[in-house]
Write a protein that binds this DNA or RNA. Structure first.
Length: 878
RNA sequence: GGGCGAUUAGCUCAGCUGGUUUAGAGCGUCUGCCUUACAAGCAGAGGGUCUGCGGUUCGAAUCCGUAAUCGCCCACCA
């Protein structure tokens, strides 16, 4: 074999193996007799690019999938993308604007053509990027939330829910996004605290001979044109005089009534509230109970309409400034104060939302809330971390109807059709226009034509297709009885961020029960947010987000995966730091070099196995099995970073630093066949354990350690069952390590070169069974039992046993004494604590026997140690 | 305003139903080493009165109460 570089170079292997896995369809799954393990990807936006959040999320999914695969399960990870209605439409509009094209100049068909072009051009880039990360998705199953199958399913579900009476159309105050001119759901609104102004306006009382006026505090003076009442609290004495009066809207001059409602806070502002039913949720409610007129003063883009009078055509924020000046000039402004309030912004377009009254489609959520709460609370669907159960429950208990219509073109068009009968609009909902026509004819008894039907212009909320994702990926809506659905559904685990627990997770659970009769997944693993190392969210504007592909380029995919996982406990945010990824890269290098060591050895099949190697093999076997059990346990609890750390330490500390050092033959000497075979077996299992975390380097090395055929892969191997663990041997070896470490410390302090052999004297019950290893690891000439250590020896304690190295003249008595005194003090303090406990009658009476026995053991051990230290001190002083 | 979570070594975190030789890990720090697998390394060392205060208990990082600080979610008083 050719000489291997001393540094691992990921570039040479990563693309090669990914291509190999894909070529051999190793990620492909079809139903068979094995137990399935399925994950559906949270579909990223079709035109999106990979960011650190995706990296974390998909690394976790890949780890779970690869591990399941190696546990003998039929693992399937289904990839796909989301059409992301608003996000994509916004991008397309922006792109068209850059080309000088306005959306309003295009027909729906023309616009959609542009949108599809854009989708085809940018779509799937992110899926290519996932390959770089090593994601083992079954690409043959790649889906899109707006492909034919998914679209038909969405339409069918809409019709079904409409028929069940769970979908309705109604006039409601919705959150209006004036940029994209669409309604959005409550969940898509983010409130941001802002420094604004509170304007105090004068509303003169109509027909009042004394010219009195009321003062109203508002943050939105631009909406006065829509005022249709002023409201006071009936119990407010200071505004008592206004009862039954009419007041005049400033500048506008219109008379409006003073109404009374306990909704108004007496202590806020002046206790007078202007009521604008068309432009505020609470005002709308007041308008309804008091039968007020509703005056909508805004256009769809939040400029003022004809009701705006002289301000018509101006933007709402411009009007606010102008109207403030005009009020001031007209002497109608009492005062202006600084004020901090919360303003709702559209999550997608970042413009202030405008409450707007409009006809929208809704889902009645009460039914869905009922069917989806229990399974989570009873852990039939397990949330990790568990705290999100509460979040979930509270949301369901206060659930609002879901506004599912959007005034967009990019999306699933609402399958509702309108036709007129005697000037009255009727609605028919059906899966196709043909079916709608038939229905309409039947319902109306009229001989309607195709052209008499007009389809709703709106599209559906993106989540209306995503909530079906685990079902539609297996065609479970159109063909509910199919084998794939029965086999893969419910899926095993969903990995996603807590930010979409309501948008997506909750709704998938609802749809799952409604349309597949069972939960969509058994576990939900909520990842944290990837932050920079000082805790800030990663964002484009801050420029603190590294480009994932550059990271992979620099550190290798394995290194990046490992770096992310090292610090990612479930549900906790992760503080990303290049240092972590460097650690990952370094680990890959460590594995690489361990392999270089092994492949450099010559093997002598006739050579007898040294005693030290025999013990080391036995010990490491136990250590390996113990870690395998631990990893299994941790993975079951989704404590992935801890599982990785366990394997990391197993490889680096136990295998490399101890095991390999023990069995390593002297330079130029061969290794015996038996030890070599065992070692290669260990190495292979280590690679298998590591593979889910670091797929590339483990494949590369696995291919090297034996003859492999085309099509073989570590991916296809099954992780062996953990064997027995000899705890007593593990404990004895730990003691041995302490002795070796003690000797190394003495070498360091006394400047004794590692090459120089030393003699060791032992006082006490030394376990000589592992001496062969002790001699080798400590470079010890001989181990001699003694009754007392020599006066010029330097000693240390391991448990109650004293080890000493005779140093003749190399000893500094002063230093030695100081060290011993310090040690003595420590143990005396310790003993005092133990004895205090033991002399406490209540402790002895109440504590369990085991605990007392342990304390007694501590007592005797400490006493022995103290005696040994005192003897040493005495010897030194003599 | 309502709720949830956190506070343990310089940093990031374990520490599960109180008792595991007077609190552990990884990284970083310090010291010494280019020892033919690896300086992306090896060896060794130092580092914490477990946020404060009270309580329960024979015994508290662990349970209870309280305060402070930080973070998140929900609500949205003009």
């Amino acid at each position: 074999m050719s000489e291997l570089a001393s540094k691992y170079n990921p570039h040479e292997v990563e693309d090669k193996w990914y291509e190999y896995w894909e070529r051999h369809k190793m990620f492909h799954s079809v139903p068979d007799e094995r137990e399935p393990y399925c994950i559906v990807i949270p579909p990223p936006n079709v035109t999106g690019v990979l960011h650190m959040g995706h990296m974390l999320n998909n690394t976790i999914q890949d780890i779970l999938i690869r591990r399941a695969r190696m546990m003998g399960k039929n693992a399937l990870w289904v990839p796909g993308t989301d059409h992301a209605a608003i996000a994509t439409e916004t991008k397309v509009i922006q792109k068209l604007a850059d080309e000088g094209i306005k959306k309003t100049d295009l027909t729906r068909e023309q616009f959609l053509e542009h949108a599809w072009d854009w989708t085809h051009k940018h779509g799937g880039i992110i899926l290519q990027q996932l390959r770089k990360l090593g994601a083992s998705c079954d690409w043959d199953r790649t889906a899109f939330t707006m492909d034919e199958l998914r679209s038909k399913s969405v339409t069918k579900v809409f019709c079904d829910l409409y028929d069940k009476g769970l979908i309705y159309r109604g006039l409601r105050m919705v959150n209006w996004d004036p940029k994209n001119k669409t309604a959005i759901s409550d969940d898509e609104v983010n409130f941001v605290q802002e420094h604004s102004k509170l304007y105090y306006l004068r509303y003169y009382v109509a027909d009042d001979p004394e010219g009195r006026y009321a003062v109203v505090a508002t943050t939105r003076p631009e909406t006065i044109m829509g005022d249709t009442a002023m409201c006071i609290n009936p119990k407010d004495p200071k505004n008592e005089w206004l009862k039954g009066k009419k007041v005049i809207v400033p500048l506008v001059g219109r008379e409006i009534p003073v109404i009374e409602d306990r909704y108004v806070e007496i202590d806020f502002g002046t206790g007078c509230l202007k009521v604008t039913p068309a432009h505020d949720k609470n005002d709308y409610m007041l308008g309804k109970t008091h039968n007020l007129e509703t005056i909508d003063i805004f256009n769809e883009d939040a400029t003022l309409n004809e009701h705006g009078g002289k301000y018509a055509g101006m933007d709402r924020f411009e009007v606010r400034k102008q109207i403030a000046r005009d009020l001031e000039a007209a002497g109608l402004m009492e005062k202006v104060e600084d004020y901090t309030n919360n303003v709702g912004y559209s999550e997608r377009t970042k413009v202030a939302i405008e409450p707007r009254l409009s006809l929208q489609w809704f889902i009645d959520m009460r039914h869905f809330a009922e069917i989806s709460l229990g399974p989570v609370m009873e852990d039939y669907i397990r949330f990790v971390p568990e705290k999100y159960k509460t979040t979930y429950r509270l949301w369901l208990e206060n659930i609002q109807d879901w506004c599912i219509s959007r005034q967009l073109w990019w999306g699933h068009r609402i399958p509702a059709y309108y036709y007129d009968v005697d000037g009255e609009t009727r609605i028919v909902v059906a899966e196709s226009k043909e079916a709608a026509l038939e229905k309409a004819r039947a319902e109306s008894g009229l001989d309607l034509k195709m052209d008499d039907l007009v389809q709703d212009e709106g599209a559906l909320d993106t989540w209306f297709s995503s909530w079906l994702w685990p079902i539609t990926l297996f065609n479970g809506i159109l063909d509910p009885e199919n084998e794939e659905l029965k086999y893969y559904y419910p899926t095993a685990t969903l990995v996603t961020g807590p930010d979409i627990i309501f948008f997506w997770v909750a709704r998938m659970i609802m749809a799952g029960y409604e349309y597949a009769g069972d939960k969509p997944f058994s576990n939900v693993y909520f990842t944290g947010i990837v932050r920079d190392k000082i805790g800030r969210k990663m964002s484009k504007s801050l420029g603190n987000s590294p480009d994932p592909l550059e990271l992979i380029e620099k550190f290798g995919a394995d290194g990046v995966r490992m770096g992310l996982m090292l610090s990612a406990p479930a549900g906790n945010d992760i503080m990303y730091d290049d240092a972590l990824v460097e650690q990952g890269r370094n680990f890959a290098n460590k594995i690489w070099n361990a392999f270089r060591l092994l492949q450099g050895w010559t093997v002598d099949e006739n050579m007898a196995q040294p005693e030290s190697s025999r013990i080391a093999v036995e010990w490491f076997g136990s250590q390996l099995h113990k870690t395998m059990v631990e990893v299994e346990d941790l993975m079951g609890k989704f404590r992935i970073s801890e599982a990785l750390m366990a394997v990391y330490k197993l490889f680096w500390d136990e295998f490399s630093s101890w095991y390999l050092e023990v069995i390593k033959p002297a330079y130029g000497s061969p290794v015996d066949g038996k030890t070599f075979a065992e070692t290669m077996r260990f190495f292979e299992i280590l690679l298998q354990l590591l593979h889910p975390f670091m797929p590339f380097i483990t494949e590369e090395l696995w291919q090297h350690i034996a003859e492999r055929k085309d099509g073989d892969s570590i991916m296809k191997t099954t992780l062996p069952e953990a064997g027995t663990v000899d705890e007593s041997l593990l404990a004895r070896f730990e003691t041995l390590k302490e002795i070796v470490t003690g000797l190394r410390a003495i070498r360091k302090q006394r400047n004794i070169p590692n090459k120089e052999e030393i003699a060791v004297e032992v006082k006490g019950a030394h376990d000589s069974g592992l001496d062969s290893i002790l001699l080798k690891m400590g470079n010890v000439r001989e181990i001699t039992p003694v009754d007392e250590k020599g006066a010029t020896s330097v000693a240390f304690l391991v448990g109650p046993v004293e080890y000493s190295v005779p140093l003749a003249d190399k000893i500094n008595v002063e230093e030695e004494l100081a060290k011993l005194e310090k040690e003595l003090k420590r143990f005396e303090g310790f003993l005092a604590g133990v004895e205090k406990k033991l002399s406490n009658e209540r402790f002895v009476a109440n504590a369990p026997e085991q605990v007392i026995a342990l304390e007694r053991k501590k007592q005797s051990d400490a006493t022995e140690k103290i005696a040994a230290i005192k003897a040493s001190i005495a010897a030194l002083k003599a």
